[in-house]
Write a protein that binds this DNA or RNA. Structure first.
Length: 213
DNA sequence: ATCCCGAGGG
DNA sequence: CCCTCTGGAT
């Protein structure tokens, strides 16, 4: 449970998957924040298919704050949960425009007050948007660190703290992306492909899971 | 069928 | 802790 081992894991995952570049196509905090809200329970592909249209028509918080829910649902429909998301991003835009002078807050306390922003989304905004050493402990990160024996708690805040403590501060974005890829492709929730796992030699779970071709 | 870089509410 | 919200990919 120390940084040396986490560094080793990150290194092994990098060797396996190559260097993954953080997706920094969102040119400003407005785009990043909205994209993060839209990303809940869907894939990048879906989000990327609607953001050009959305950002083309609503380039900033102010314009989005004046939009109608119906117009937004029409655009973001394919990302799922579209009624919640539409309502949330309009309301969020209003709050940021009126209460934060159009500036996205740079701390957890204020971010999670915004509709549609929870701990995970807030951490993505803090790390990618503000370059802070925040790590979004999503389902993949939580699952992988738990299987590796790094986290024992069920409390999400404690898990987040434990995980953040072991990830090198210079590598948090890369680490996050590696964990996501690894979690989706190999260390899956069900039927993990332990035989193909780049870090199986470090994983106590591996030996209990039979390999099925 | 099952899952997705979740959030909000009871 | 539980449940609901939703389309799309596999």
């Amino acid at each position: 449970m120390d940084k040396a081992i986490s560094k080793k894991i990150i290194k092994l995952l990098s060797q396996r998957y190559g260097s993954i570049n953080p997706d920094l196509k969102y040119i400003d905090l407005y785009q990043l924040t909205i994209a993060v809200v839209l990303s809940a329970q869907t894939t990048d592909k879906q989000v990327n298919s609607v953001t050009p249209i959305l950002f083309g028509k609503y380039p900033d918080f102010k314009s989005l704050s004046g939009a109608k829910i119906k117009e937004i649902t029409k655009i973001i429909r394919s990302t799922g949960f579209y009624r919640n998301k539409s309502k949330n991003i309009i309301e969020l835009s209003k709050i940021i425009t009126k209460q934060h002078k159009g500036i996205v807050p740079d701390n957890m306390k204020e971010l999670i007050k915004l509709p549609g922003i929870g701990r995970k989304s807030a951490n993505v905004i803090l790390s990618i948007g503000f370059k802070k050493p925040a790590l979004a402990v999503d389902t993949h990160v939580a699952r992988i660190t738990k299987r590796l024996g790094y986290t024992l708690s069920h409390n999400p805040v404690e898990v987040e703290r434990d995980v953040t403590a072991i990830i090198p501060r210079t590598d948090w974005i890369k680490a996050h992306l590696l964990f996501i890829k690894h979690g989706r492709e190999i260390c899956k929730a069900r039927k993990p492909l332990c035989r193909e796992c780049a870090v199986n030699s470090l994983c106590p779970d591996t030996h209990n899971i039979p390999y099925r071709p």
